[in-house]
Design a protein around this nucleic acid. Structure first.
Length: 479
RNA sequence: CGCGGGAUGGAGGAGUGGUACCUCGGGAGGCUCAUAACCUCCAGACACCGGUUCGAGUCCGGUUCCCGCAACCA
């Protein structure tokens, strides 16, 4: 390690934690792959990286589902946690920690942050009464009601509830949040930041953060009150630091959260949780804010939200099964806009796969290495030099991929223009020089692909070193 | 006048104030190293109206049409 590299800051990245009441969908896959690509890129340029993900496992909805299935609750969440953890293999994720909110250490951290907020005078208690929707785990206002029921759950009668709950005085942090959100670097994209700022400026109310155990008996106990458990969000958000060993304020927490650079990746529906509530909680507990939260859009299919009734749901496992791991990563990184909504259909994905991976990257690798294998001796390439990857923090994955595919297309053009396969018969020295140059360019592409398509990168680099045409990188789709 | 996002060739998408790009599709050639792959050329687009500017898809104002969100939504 050079001196320059040892000076590089540690970097932390986390996804949000999926709530384990359903199988993983494509949105999570997008989030995981974005975070993973960034983590791999950082490691490549010499940063020490902590990449966190995991599962959010408390709350009434999960308790009810487990109970309805006649399953032990812990066994139920164990099963789902495993479903999500399996994505690690399917998508080739490199996370350092898979935290579960039912982990004992996490529960203690959640209780500790509660105590800190309470000590700061930010937690109170008051009586809530009204109609409550179990589906959303929230009180309904009169204006919410549609035919007397929750608009999101029109088949279930809301229940009349009167109960005393703890609340977090979010309004204490209006001024702080306005200051935090005025910094242009804290949210990507900027229009989400503007929205968050407007939201805070409009005034913040109290946030209910507990539920009586008599009604919801599946959560982290409220410190000093056996009758209540924490509202699932308050518990879940704490994972971003409990995963680092907090409340131990040394070790990884100090290295990554306090002294390092922190990035959270989340869906666009998360702005008020990640950039408002969570930041207020951190401030209340006397902890540093997140440096930047990047919000991705949603993936639609055929112009509609994915839904079971429309039959247009695309699952991450289906993608991996059809195209393979790296091709799935490619599709999510290059053909999904990093911050806006995107639309994917099987037809379009087939097209992207065939045009850019089979006919593009795969084919050009085969044609170059076939010629090299026949006409050149192997060359001993230097290992990857981290400095050649130095650059700004890349969150615009589409742009980065476009840059690589420009180079791929350029290689095809050079072959057609210089015709080394023809020249080798008349002027072998010139032809060999062209091939040496092409091989060098292919190696470069192989290296650039490392963060986004790790296995493909490895295969290409190994094949270039071996000076052998590899088996087809991407199989042609069957008719 | 609630807030925000969007409108780019036949289709789907990129686009930092400076020759509008990519993939698919259409037409015409070329090549044989390669996964019937690849290359070249042709046709074809910045929703509408103003403004700023030497110069606008890009910045500003207005109009029309789509799409989200509107306090605890995973």
């Amino acid at each position: 390690m050079s001196e320059e590299n040892t000076q590089k800051k540690a970097r932390y990245i986390t996804t949000t934690l999926p709530y384990v009441n359903a199988d993983p969908h494509i949105g999570f896959a997008l989030e995981f792959v974005q975070a993973d690509t960034l983590a791999r890129y950082w490691r490549l340029i010499g940063h020490e990286v902590f990449f966190n993900t995991g599962t959010d496992e408390h709350g009434q909805k999960i308790a009810e589902k487990a109970d309805a299935a006649g399953q032990d609750r812990q066994a139920y969440v164990d099963h789902y946690a495993e479903q999500f953890n399996k994505l690690k293999g399917a998508l080739n994720l490199s996370y350092d920690k898979f935290i579960r909110t039912t982990d004992e250490a996490h529960k203690q951290a959640a209780q500790e942050i509660w105590k800190r907020c309470a000590a700061q005078g930010d937690i109170g208690k008051k009586t809530y009464s009204g109609l409550y929707c179990v589906g959303d785990e929230m009180f309904l206002r009169d204006t919410d009601l549609v035919n007397g029921r929750c608009p999101n759950h029109p088949n279930v009668d809301p229940i009349q509830v009167e109960e005393e709950n703890y609340y977090f005085k979010l309004s204490n942090y209006e001024e702080y949040l306005i200051e935090y959100l005025s910094d242009e670097s804290v949210i990507i994209p900027d229009w989400q930041r503007a929205w968050a700022l407007d939201f805070v400026k409009a005034g913040l109310g109290d946030l209910s953060i507990s539920r009586p155990k008599s009604r919801v008996n599946w959560g982290v106990p409220v410190p000093g009150d056996d009758d209540h458990v924490m509202y699932v969000w308050f518990d879940a958000l704490t994972n971003y630091i409990s995963t680092l060993g907090w409340p131990n304020e040394n070790g990884d927490f100090k290295k990554f959260w306090v002294e390092g650079e922190t990035v959270q990746v989340a869906g666009k529906d998360q702005v008020r949780f990640q950039s408002i509530i969570w930041q207020a909680m951190l401030k209340s507990a006397g902890l540093p804010a997140t440096d930047v939260v990047s919000y991705h859009g949603f993936i639609n299919s055929g112009g509609h939200k994915m839904s079971k009734s429309l039959g247009n749901v695309i699952s991450p496992y289906e993608l991996v099964e059809k195209y393979g791991t790296d091709a799935t990563r490619y599709l999510l990184l290059r053909h999904v806009h990093p911050t806006e909504d995107s639309d994917l259909t099987w037809e379009k994905m087939d097209e992207y796969y065939t045009a850019n991976l089979v006919n593009g990257l795969g084919n050009v690798t085969a044609r170059i290495l076939k010629m090299c294998e026949t006409h050149l001796e192997p060359f001993n390439f230097e290992p990857i030099d981290p400095t050649q990857f130095e650059g700004p923090m890349i969150l615009n994955f589409q742009q980065a991929m476009d840059h690589i595919w420009d180079k791929i297309q350029r290689m095809d053009e050079i072959i057609a223009e210089t015709e080394p396969f023809k020249l080798i018969k008349t002027d072998p020295e010139i032809a060999k020089n062209i091939l040496v140059d092409l091989r060098e360019q292919l190696m470069h592409v192989g290296r650039l692909l490392l963060p986004c398509m790790p296995e493909t990168s490895k295969t290409i680099r190994a094949a270039v070193r071996a000076n052998r045409k590899p088996d087809n990188l991407f199989k042609r789709l069957e008719e």
